[in-house]
C-alpha cells in the first residue's frame, strides 16, 4: 500500500519558488531510500508529494528536503535577489 505525504511550501514570490524547484528537481532521491518525490510549482508555492512503503522512509526524506530548502533560502538571502527575471542557461548543451 505505502504512504503518501503532500506538502506545500510557500515562498515570497513565484520566482523564488521556481528557483527552489529548479535547484531541487535535479537530484534524484537515492534509489535505496525507497522514496519517490514529485515536485511542482503553483504560483508562489512549491508543491511536493512523497510516496514510500514505510513512514520512516518518508521522515528521512522530508528532513533532507527541508534542510535543502533552508540552505537555498539562506543562499538567496545572502547572494540574491536574482539579477534577471528568468534563467537563460537551461538548455545550453
Amino acid at each position: 500500500m505505502g504512504v503518501t505525504l503532500n506538502i506545500e511550501v510557500p515562498f515570497p514570490n513565484n520566482q523564488q519558488a521556481q528557483i527552489v524547484y529548479d535547484v531541487l528537481r535535479v537530484d534524484r532521491e537515492p534509489s535505496r531510500s525507497g522514496v519517490e518525490k514529485e515536485l511542482k510549482v503553483k504560483d508562489c508555492i512549491l508543491v511536493a508529494k512523497f510516496t514510500a512503503e514505510l513512514p520512516r522512509q518518508i521522515r528521512v526524506s522530508i528532513n533532507g528536503f527541508f534542510d535543502k530548502i533552508d540552505l537555498i533560502t539562506e543562499t538567496f538571502d545572502n547572494f540574491g535577489p536574482p539579477v534577471s527575471e528568468s534563467y537563460s542557461h537551461f538548455n545550453n548543451a
Binding site: V23, D27, K68, L71, I72, T75, F76, F79, Y87
Partner: peptide, 22 residues
C-alpha cells in the same frame, strides 16, 4: 553523496541568482 549534494545546491542556487551557466 550528502556532502556533494550540499555544495552542489549552493552552486545551483547562485547560478540561478546570478544567471550564469553551470
Amino acid at each position: 553523496g550528502a556532502p556533494l549534494s550540499t555544495v552542489a545546491i549552493v552552486a545551483r542556487t547562485v547560478a540561478q541568482l546570478w544567471n550564469k551557466p553551470l
